[in-house]
Nucleic acid binder design. Structure first.
Lengths: 222, 222
DNA sequence: ACCTGAACACCGTTCAAGT
DNA sequence: ACCTGAACACCGTTCAAGT
């Protein structure tokens, strides 16, 4: 009944590769050691020989995803294309984004932050503001990706997504226009929206703000 | 030994209030029904009479937190102070931010998005871009809050935070300057950084970008 | 209508035993 | 050094029985 045990030896890399597949298929919540050991045709103890626990494993997976994205992006990019490369990679593995944090460090998250900071060096932005702006951009990229308006994980097919959006758009239309003056008129926008466009819109606002104020002082407090 | 059962009757509101306390104390991961029923001095079934399951309960908690923030903020705010009110409220309950999403709707998330959209109406921004920009700002506020550089949940005391940052700053200093030209020079910035400043920096970039391009067309693709 | 609390299914982790 | 797999502790959820 049960499939034969694996004969090749396990490694951290093999475990991570299998885990990424399962995370993509089932999401972080549906990803269990039972699924993992079945896929790897081995026992739980074998996995624990290579990784400390589930949390570390998921972090390793997220780091692999981010590392691949940075490698694929190449070193010669500007801020905007770097951000889009990362967005696209994280969008394909939506469970990964929330693990991309600087502290405690996901190794490739440090690389990403460094590249953002380095790209700012070729900019009129005053040196003392560089760290603040670099982390602001880093935060924008990974955290907005982590939390798109329609989570891809929820619906698999494009048709399912369209149907879901149509249903939500309809519910927006029937909201009370007194309390929701904006949303009642935005149902069509919701139905036709694209998550990547929203990401790009915010990113361009951020970069525009950067261009326009990088010479000047702090923005006003009011 | 075990404390007396409660005599007052339970309600959804009472359950949510107790759950928020425990979420603040233990984080989402440490929050269990065992802790909850002990705190409420009742049985598991009693809780399930008032809420469908744990996921719904945490969503109700997050919605309460956001609702209180919006109520406290008052209706007369500009975009910047609204964003800061929400940031400050979510910062006090760091588990809540990742549940503040538009679809599937957290009720008060709809209110927040509507208020952002409505505030944009009094702006030269072309009407057809309003939804895109509103969601971009919404995404920035809630998702950056969800993922600050130093998660507050990790360290309780200010002294603990300082010590942790100092340790990380030291590790940045000893990185290879070839591969991390920016971070090796940013150790001091890390040690002295403030999460709220980073949030405000990104927010002001976003709002500056909005001011400067709201009349004009799309930003360039390159 | 609302609550009790034992029972169930599931899941991450451990560990003595194997090779 | 690397793997096995039964056992353990824990946790969300259910449900027959109570008031």
């Amino acid at each position: 009944m049960s499939p034969a045990r694996r004969t090749e030896s396990l490694s951290r890399e093999v475990v991570v590769t299998a885990a990424i597949e399962l995370l993509d298929e089932h999401g972080e919540r549906g990803f269990t050691f039972k699924l993992l050991t079945e896929r790897l045709r081995t026992g739980a103890g074998a996995v624990y020989w290579h990784v400390a626990n589930k949390e570390e494993l998921v972090r390793l997976c997220a780091d692999r995803v981010l590392g691949d994205a940075l490698a694929a992006a190449g070193p010669e990019q500007d801020l905007r294309s770097l951000a889009l490369s990362v967005y696209d990679a994280l969008d394909r593995h939506s469970w990964a984004a929330r693990h991309v944090i600087v502290l405690p460090s996901l190794p490739h998250a440090l690389h990403l932050l460094d590249r953002i900071g380095t790209l700012l060096t070729g900019t009129p932005l005053p040196a003392e503001r560089r760290f603040l702006v670099a982390t602001a951009i880093f935060n924008y990229v990974v955290s907005v990706t982590a939390q798109d308006v329609v989570r891809v994980a929820t619906v698999d097919t494009a048709a399912g997504r369209d149907a879901l959006l149509a249903a939500y758009a309809k519910s927006w239309e029937s909201l009370d226009p007194q309390t929701f003056p904006f949303l009642t008129g935005a149902a069509t926008d919701l139905r036709e929206h694209d998550d990547r466009d929203q990401f790009v819109t915010g990113l361009d606002l951020l970069l525009d703000g950067l261009r326009h104020q990088s010479g000047g002082g702090q923005p006003g407090e009011g």
